[in-house]
Nucleic acid binder design. Structure first.
Lengths: 229, 229
DNA sequence: CATTTTGTTTGTCGGGGCGCAAACCAGGCC
DNA sequence: GGCCTGGTTTGCGCCCCGACAAACAAAATG
C-alpha cells in the first residue's frame, strides 16, 4: 500500500487536505520503467495521468518524416501525461524514461473529482500547464530569433537549472544526454552540437564525455546564451 | 446594458446556465480598440481577461533585442488575455488590434467564481489552453524540422482556415497582413517571404496585393506545406 | 495635387550550418 | 580479452537564406 507521505510535500499537492490526499494516493499504482522504455506513446488514447516519483524522462514529438523533437524533460516530482486536464483524448508525444524511473499512475476517471474537490490542486496543475505553455512559447521565440550557438547554450543552462548536480568540476547534468538529444532540443544537428561542445571544452567552459556534460564556467555559457560575444 | 445573447452561442460559453451567463455578462464592459492599438502590453500586470466580439488581433512577443514574434492571431469569438486562468500575474505578450475591434473586458476577480460555478465553462477554457499549447508545440516542431518554404505555406493555410473568406478569386485572408507579419509568424525575414509569395503568384497558387493575400490553389499550397515537391 | 510614409520587390553577396562520409572511441556483452 | 554497437569527432562542399541596398508602388496626409 502506498503512503500519502510519498507525495504530500510535492508541489502539485501542496494545500491539499489530508483525507483528499489519502483518497488520491489510494487510487494510484506505482510503476517502474526501465531506461529507454516508453511510458506512453504519441497518438495513443490517453487513459492515465502520471507523477514522476524518481528519475528523469523526456517528452518527444515525432514527425511524419521520422524526425524527433524533444518537447521537454520531466524531473522527479512533476506531473506528466495530464492530457485529461486539457480535454485531450490522445497523448501528443512519447514519454521515454531517460534513466530507470518510478512513477505513480492514475486512471483518468480520478481526475475530475480530484479537481472539483481540491481547488488548490486545480490551481497548481493549471499553473503548471501555464508554465509549460510559456516555456514552449519562449522556445519558439528563441528558435525564431536566436542562432544555434545561443540556443544550445540556453538548453544547457536550462538542464543545469532543472537537474544540475554540483561536483568538484562544476555542475553536472544528472542523467545521460547525448549530442543528438541536445540537437533535438535546439532544432539543429548532432554534428553542429558536437562542434560547439568541442569548442567550448577547449575554451574550458564545459567538460564532457559520452552522454555526460558538466558546465564549468556557467557565467561564460550565460554570456553565449544571451548573445554577447 | 449588454445582453447575454451577445455571447451565449460562443464556444467558450456553451453549456452555461442562463443565470450564470447573465451574471457574467453584467460584469463585462464592452470596449472598442482602433486598428493598431494595444489591448494589453507584454509585462504589464494582468488585471483583466477578454473576449473578442468582433475583429482580429495578433498576440506578439517582443525580444530584448526588439525582434517580434507573432504567437498567434485571435479571431472573433475567442477568449484572450486569460493569464488569470493559469495563475500568471503579468501578460506574456502584446495584444494588438489588426483591424478595428470590439472586445468584452472583465476584471480578473470575476474569473474564479465563474470557474467554480460553471464546470462546463472551466472545461471549455482549459481545452482552449490545451489547444494553444498543442498548437505552439506543433509550431515548435515545424520550426525545428521544416524549411522556410513549408513553414510559410503552413502559415498561409492556417490563416485561411482561421479567417478565410471565399471570393471569386479564391480564399482571401480577411484582414490586413504584411510580408513582415508572415515572416514574424514563421521565423524568417520579410525578404524571403516576399520572394516566396512572388514565386507562388507567378505559378498561380496565390494572388496578393498590399497586405492582402488570396489563396487560389490551396491543393498546391498544401503540397508545399507538406514538403512534397 | 504634392509629399511623405509604409509596404513590397528584386539584386547581389556571403556565411552559417546542414548533409554526407569516414574515422574514432568507449562501454557493454559474450 | 575481443568484438560490436552506439555515441562522438572532424573534414569538406554546397546551398539555403539572411544581410544589405536600392528602387518602386501604393496609401496616407495635408
Amino acid at each position: 500500500m502506498l503512503d500519502k507521505s510519498l507525495i504530500a510535500d510535492l508541489p502539485p499537492f501542496v494545500g491539499m487536505e489530508t483525507d483528499s490526499l489519502e483518497k488520491l494516493i489510494s487510487a494510484a499504482k506505482a510503476q517502474r520503467y526501465a531506461k529507454d522504455t516508453h511510458i506512453f506513446r504519441q497518438g495513443a488514447t490517453a487513459e492515465h495521468f502520471y507523477l514522476l516519483l524518481d528519475g528523469h524522462l523526456r517528452v518527444v514529438k515525432v514527425t511524419e518524416h521520422g524526425e524527433q523533437v524533444i518537447a521537454r524533460y520531466i524531473s522527479t516530482g512533476e506531473l506528466f501525461g495530464i492530457a485529461v486536464a486539457i480535454s485531450r483524448d490522445i497523448y501528443p508525444a512519447n514519454a521515454i524514461a531517460a534513466v530507470d524511473c518510478v512513477a505513480l499512475v492514475w486512471p483518468n476517471s480520478v481526475w475530475q473529482p480530484t479537481i472539483e474537490k481540491n481547488p488548490s490542486f486545480a490551481t497548481n496543475t493549471y499553473r503548471t500547464i501555464g508554465d509549460r505553455l510559456q516555456e514552449t512559447q519562449d522556445r519558439l521565440v528563441e528558435l525564431s530569433t536566436e542562432r544555434v550557438e545561443q540556443r544550445v547554450a540556453s538548453a544547457l543552462l536550462k538542464l543545469v537549472r532543472q537537474t544540475g548536480r554540483q561536483t568538484d568540476d562544476g555542475v553536472l547534468i544528472d542523467f545521460p544526454i547525448s549530442r543528438q538529444d541536445l540537437s533535438e532540443m535546439t532544432g539543429t544537428t548532432l554534428h553542429t552540437v558536437s562542434r560547439l561542445l568541442s569548442a567550448w571544452e577547449i575554451e574550458g567552459l564545459i567538460k564532457s564525455g559520452r552522454q555526460r556534460i558538466t558546465v564549468v564556467e556557467d557565467h561564460k555559457v550565460m554570456r553565449i546564451a544571451h548573445g554577447q560575444k
